[in-house]
Structure formats: C-alpha cells, structure tokens
Amino acid sequence: MDTHTDDGGGALMGVMADAWTWLTTGSNWSGDDGAWHRLAEHAYVSGVSLLVACAIALPLALWLGHIGRGGALAVNISNVGRAVPVFAVLALLMLTPLRKEGYLPTIIALVLFAVPPLLTNAYVGMREVDRSVVEAARGMGMSGGQLFARVELPLAYPLIMIGVRSAAVQVVATATIASMVGLGGLGRIITAGFATYNTPQVVAGAILAALLALLVEGVLVVADRLFSPLRHRRAQGTTP
C-alpha cells in the first residue's frame, strides 16, 4: 500500500516537473503551434469579442434601464446563457460555412456568451439606483441625459463593472474551449497534448490558460478599485 501511494505521489510530482520543463523549453514557445502564438490568438479573439459584446450589450442595457423596460429579457438572458453549452455552440458553428472564416466562429461564440452577464448586470445596476435619488435629480431640473450621465451611470457603475469582469472571465474561458473544435487559442496546447497522450503538455497548457484567466480577473478587480467614480467621491466625503 505504501509503495503504491508513493508511486502515485511520485508520478504526480514527475508530471508537474515535466510540465515545468515543457514551460521552460524555448522551442515550445515559438512557431505557429508555440505558446506565444497561441497566447496571441487567445488575447486577440478575447479582446475583440469583449469589445464587440460591450458595444452591443452595454448601450442596450443602459437604455433599457434608463427607460425602465425589458427587465424580463435582461434578466432571463443570463439563465438562457447558462443552460446552453459553449461547446455545443462552437460545434454547431463549425458545421456551417463559417468554419472557413478563420477566427469568426470563435468570436461569434464568445460574443454570444459575453452578452448575458453584461446585459443583466448593467440593467440591474441601472434599476437598483435609488428611486428617491432619481426623483431628487429630476426635481433639481436635470434633463433625461443629465440624469443618466450624472446620477444613474455613476451609481450603476459598480454592477456594470461586475458584468464586464464576469464577461471577460467568461470570454477567456470560452476561448479555451474553442480548441476542442479545432480552433486556435491556448486550449490548443491542451488538446494537442491530449491527442498525443502528452500529459505534461496538457498540464502546462492548463496552467497557462488558468493563469491568463486569473490574471484577467485580477487586473479587472484592481482597475475597478482604481477607477470607480464613487470611490473618489467617497474619499472626498470622508475628508471634508
């Protein structure tokens, strides 16, 4: 029994050491199948998709929130997004003529799954703005536009940013799954490892994909703290 567990632990350590060797071997980083190219692909599709998703979802959500309509859509779309497997959408896209369009299938899938968290959080953020504050702003003679820009948007900002953060993390994760249908991105290191029974490579690719997702989450958390409009005002308020 003891030797068996020792072997298990030893094998695990061996795989981790081999994964480390994979990560520190220069040739694994260069070329079209190399980690740098896969990382660039991953960053490119993720960045484009997040921008497109924000451009679609945020104006719509903010407008719906401002006029106070479409709540059922904005909230339910998240539930729908959760029930549909990313893998299935990517697979379906790959069986259409779109498969010949390079990164387009990935970008379409990423946008589809980034829109729900953006839409729901921004809408809820707008609707949760204290109604008495809105009424007070109206009473002060603010126009619809002023109300939106000076009251609703700053107060909804924290939830909007939570939406952007979950969308960004979702996008980075979904971009990994794109490799399962033969598309580019960091996941390709993983699936190529699976195809050649190369466990160290699978683990190395997984470490890179996990680190990238955590890095994105971490950067957005810090950015949120630094740039939140309310934080600035709160600081002003506490130091008269």
């Binding site: 990994t176 997984a206 470490i207 997702a213």
Partner: peptide, 18 residues
C-alpha cells in the same frame, strides 16, 4: 471564486495527472 475563474478545460486538464 478563484476556482470558478479557472477555465473548465484547464480545470479538467489540471486534474488529469491525479
């Protein structure tokens, strides 16, 4: 939350040696 951030494919792959 950290666990949730790890992409699913990466999570399954990290568990492969175990």
């Amino acid at each position: 939350t950290v666990l949730y951030t790890v992409p699913s494919l990466a999570m399954f792959s990290l568990l492969l040696p175990v």
